[in-house]
Design a protein around this nucleic acid. Structure first.
Length: 262
DNA sequence: ACCTCCCTGGCC
DNA sequence: GGCCAGGGAGGT
């Protein structure tokens, strides 16, 4: 996509364009623009445009981009298409419409969720000291804080559970109570969880909402130690994995390896 | 700091 | 027929 201009853009679902005034405005602001480069921070995809605007996209729960021939059969729930000047069509397919595509000028970008993101968990993993400072006033459960993209960005429910398990930290521990030693272990765990997931092509669940760009399923599901393993034995100690709801998100943890007091 | 909402496919 | 999954925005 980088270096190509968008000769035609068509958004066909209002929710996909909800961060702009509507599908028509999004299409008009994108049409004819050149994408100078693309990148990522946290779970947001970003592209720099030749007129200074920024293209921002989020896959949400079920979104994916496809790249192919405009004549290819169109999958259900295709909500956005952009024809590039090389004849390739980029499509955004998103059944649950939690994802979006947006174009922002600098002011709009500054007011968007993108500008509030904390350091990327993988590219700019914070130091123990920086994390401790960020958590020093936070009393919420560490699990909730890992999902709050303002502390560290890029972790979702699966990898937050996995990282806490590796680090041996109970998901309900208040953020500010964690020691430097624990936070150091947590940061190392975040790195290793993401490294493993990336090496395995990501975590495709049974619903196959997430797939690799070539359409294959990622193989990380059977590398998960706690997520989705409620009542199954902990791979470290054999204790049954427990599930509890924290901030209306499921949390999976080993009551032994992640004792609330240690 | 907390809650509700959004949405569809899959499952019971 | 109804519930569950969950990322982020918006409201209180």
């Amino acid at each position: 996509m980088a270096g190509r201009s968008l000769s035609e853009v068509r958004t066909t679902h209002v929710r996909t364009a909800r961060h702009n005034s509507g599908p028509r405005e999004l299409d008009e602001r994108l049409r004819g623009r050149v994408v100078l480069g693309v990148g990522r921070k946290g779970k947001f995809l970003v592209g720099a445009l030749d007129d200074g605007q920024t293209l921002v996209a989020h896959l949400g729960m079920s979104g994916r981009f496809t790249v192919g021939d405009p004549l290819d059969a169109e999958p259900a729930h295709t909500h956005f298409r952009a024809l590039l000047d090389n004849g390739v069509e980029v499509r955004f397919v998103d059944p649950r419409t939690f994802g979006f595509v947006a174009v922002f000028d600098d002011d709009e970008l500054a007011g968007s969720g993108f500008s509030r993101l904390g350091p990327d968990a993988w590219v700019e993993t914070p130091s123990t000291e920086a994390l401790q400072a960020a958590l020093s006033t936070r009393t919420a459960p560490i699990k909730a804080l890992l999902l709050d993209q303002v502390v560290v960005s890029g972790l979702g429910n699966i990898y937050a559970d996995e990282a806490l398990h590796i680090a041996g930290i109970h998901p309900l521990r208040p953020g500010q109570d964690l020691s430097a030693d624990e936070l150091g272990r947590l940061l190392a765990a975040i790195r290793s969880v993401l490294d493993l997931a990336i090496d395995n092509g990501g975590t495709s669940l049974d619903d196959l909402a997430y797939l690799l760009p070539d359409g294959r399923a990622g193989a990380n599901l059977n590398r998960l130690a706690v997520y989705g393993r409620t009542d199954l034995p902990c791979l470290e100690c054999g204790a049954p994995i427990e599930r509890m709801v924290i901030r209306s998100r499921s949390s999976h943890f080993c009551p032994d390896c992640q004792a609330i007091r240690r």
